[in-house]
Design a protein around this nucleic acid. Structure first.
Length: 505
RNA sequence: GGCGCAUUGGUGUAGUUGGUUAACACGCUGCCCUCUCAAGGCAGAGAUCACGGGUUCGAGUCCCGUAUGCGCUACCA
């Protein structure tokens, strides 16, 4: 039975890279009929927050990635991790290091690594040599018993190498000489990442570890631990990373909200669309298909289809039109206009409700009208937000007029101020009032007045919706109905707004 | 500094065991459609497949080197 896990550390929002890891794990589990488990790696108690845990769970739910079994909180297993480390000490596979802990701040660490490496290469000192490694166990026990603080380090063999075959990257080798005796337990007894991961993965019977490529060097250390513990080593599949447009790391500090999954929910993405986009970052089916529903995705997915090169998440920070990857935006629009209406409806409902545009009649009496309207306006929308923003005039009489639209479609022809109310009179007299009759009436009226139909059409569009763009005008008349159409054509609001503008100037 | 990984048009990717004009999607340009804007249709620009050697009749595909980028190198995860 295949068992995989998604193991985020709850130190912030759910990063889209992590979300993709979760997706790939989930897809693999579902495809293989295995289990997808969730483990919260909250061993860093200072940085872990409950809020972050909540947002991770919410994010997974939003993407439709349900997990099996209970969530495992890594911090709850600390005792077990310690016991494993102590067992390794007792067996002589790990040792106590009584070297006093160095105090280093986060910023100094990267520099410290480089400095130490330089010293090592120029002076030939081996930072890996540790005098406590071969301390007699009696002596070690005595000092520990006397209360002297110590860290526990794994005894990495002097000679040899670790080897594993990564499902994505192929054969990986690393000489033991390049691996430091890693710390398992801090001097305050706190278990460290590599230990905890291995113990928990063993405990959860994980068969395949699918995670970011940044863990590839950790994998060698972890294999050493599996071996020391006498446990079978799982399969590994490392994923290429998702990078920023400058090919740098994608981080919240530098790039802000584009990297947070919740942003996509809040800005009106359809989960299926974003999930589809995410799946295509670093993975592809061999054919040219790109639009995948969940079932298709599950069916087509395979670890072999994952590429090795890091992918760039292409967005332009200071351009609202390209605030995130163009393809993601396109994908979302594609889903909005083509997905089954009954799947879209609940999302639109939530959006309208959040903006106080929802009416209960939409559930029953006006259900049909709602469906027709949504189906009509969704053709041009890019996000769910558009239903309450650009689409506002369809659901409320209280909507704004776009300045550019007023300028272009109304202001340029002052005669419209009389023509449109006159058109309203014609429309009011219609019976029945429909797409066809409205069109015929408008065209005839235009001819009588000696004006272009386009003038009346575009003017009407702006009067009725506040916008310069939108569906075919006669569809709008039909959807809005006679009363609202007529009222809005007679309304002086946009003209009034314009006068205000003029007065202000 | 060391180790590892990667490198196909602006971006995401295809390119089967090496074989004619390097394919698809997004984006971009133009045209058609048209009451606007999309969608859709058509056409197009954009890649000496990072660079340099080599193997071969023939290399994006194999080998070596170089460069660049990224990752790791912590008593962080």
């Amino acid at each position: 039975m295949i068992r995989v896990r998604f193991a985020p550390s709850p130190t912030g929002y759910l990063h889209i890279g992590a979300a993709r890891s979760a997706l790939f794990n989930w897809l693999f589990a579902r495809k293989m009929g295995g289990k997808f488990l969730l483990r919260i790696e909250d061993t860093d108690l200072q940085r872990s927050t409950e809020e972050s845990t909540r947002s991770i769970i919410e994010g997974l739910r939003w993407l439709g990635l349900d997990y099996d079994e209970e969530i495992v909180f890594q911090s709850a297993n600390a005792e077990q991790h310690r016991a494993a480390a102590n067992k390794l000490v007792a067996e002589g596979k790990a040792y106590r290091d009584f070297t006093p802990k160095e105090d280093r701040d986060d910023a100094g660490i990267k520099q410290g690594i480089a400095d130490r490496a330089r010293v090592q290469s120029t002076e030939g000192t081996d930072h890996r040599s540790n005098s406590y490694r071969d301390l007699a166990s009696e002596e070690s026990d005595r000092r520990a018993a006397s209360g002297e603080p110590f860290a526990v380090r794994l005894k990495v063999p002097r000679e040899g190498k670790t080897t594993f075959s990564d499902i994505v990257y192929g054969l990986q080798e690393r000489n033991y000489s390049e691996i430091e005796d890693l710390v398992l337990l801090r001097s305050d007894g706190h278990p460290l990442y590599n230990l905890s991961v291995v113990i928990d993965d063993i405990d959860m019977c994980i068969t395949h570890v699918i995670r970011g490529q940044d863990h590839i060097t950790n994998t060698h250390k972890q294999i050493l631990l599996y071996e020391a513990l006498g446990q079978p080593v799982p399969q590994f599949a490392h994923l290429p990373l998702i990078l920023a447009p400058n090919k740098g790391k994608l981080s919240k500090r530098k790039h802000g909200e584009v990297v947070s999954l919740t942003t996509y929910r809040d800005r009106g993405f359809v989960p299926a669309a974003f999930r589809n986009f995410l799946a295509l970052l670093g993975w592809s089916a061999s054919d040219t298909k790109e639009i995948f529903g969940l079932e298709e995705l599950t069916k087509e997915f395979s670890l072999e289809g994952i590429g090795r090169a890091n992918a760039i998440f292409n967005f332009q920070e200071n351009d609202p039109r390209h605030w995130t990857d163009d393809k993601a935006l396109w994908m979302n629009a594609e889903y909005i206009r083509t997905m089954p209406l009954e799947e879209l409806l609940p999302m639109v409902k939530a959006e309208l409700r959040a903006n106080k545009l929802w009416r209960e009649e939409y559930e029953d009496d006006d259900r049909n009208w709602l469906e027709r309207t949504i189906d009509l306006i969704r053709q041009r929308f890019h996000t769910l937000k558009d239903f309450s923003l650009q689409g506002r005039a369809y659901f409320s009489d209280d909507f704004d007029f776009d300045d550019a639209a007023v300028n272009k479609n109304l202001k340029t022809e002052p005669r419209l101020r009389e023509l449109l109310p006159a058109l309203a009179d014609r429309l009011e007299a219609l019976d029945p009032f429909s797409h066809e009759t409205a069109e015929a009436a408008l065209r005839q009226f235009a001819e009588e007045q000696g004006v272009k139909t386009g003038l009346l059409i575009n003017g009407s569009r702006t009067m009725l919706t506040g916008q310069a763009v939108g569906p075919s005008m006669f569809e709008i008349f039909d959807i809005l109905g006679k009363d609202r159409s007529v009222t809005r054509l007679r309304s002086g609001v946009p003209w009034f707004d314009m006068m205000n503008v003029l007065v202000d100037v």
